[in-house]
Amino acid sequence: MTHTDWPLWEVFVRSRRGLSHTHAGSLHAPDAELALRNARDLYTRRGEGVSIWVVPSSAVTASSPDEKDPFFEPAADKPYRHPTFYEIPEGVRHL
């Protein structure tokens, strides 16, 4: 039986204009053109999209899966970046 080893592609679908493309899933295809066609058949059979991106999975660079990754640490100790950090007297409006 022949083995194909087609590369893996990540599929991003824009559900309607005004929204960003969102990751829908992945599929195998020999090239970008067929990846697009397969993505249309696989992820937009019911009008779920108006635009599709396909990206070779091998082209994605990712952070470590560890949630305690020090990579994200700088954001952890800065609650003053959130509006709820501040105490505002009751009755002050539009703030």
């Binding site: 990540e10 899933g25 990712a62 560890d66």
Partner: peptide
């Protein structure tokens, strides 16, 4: 940062053991 295999839904390199 680990390069390669971001793959949310797919990827043969399923787990990158940290060094």
């Amino acid at each position: 940062m680990a390069t390669a295999a971001a793959r949310d839904t797919a990827g043969s390199q399923a787990y990158d053991a940290p060094a």
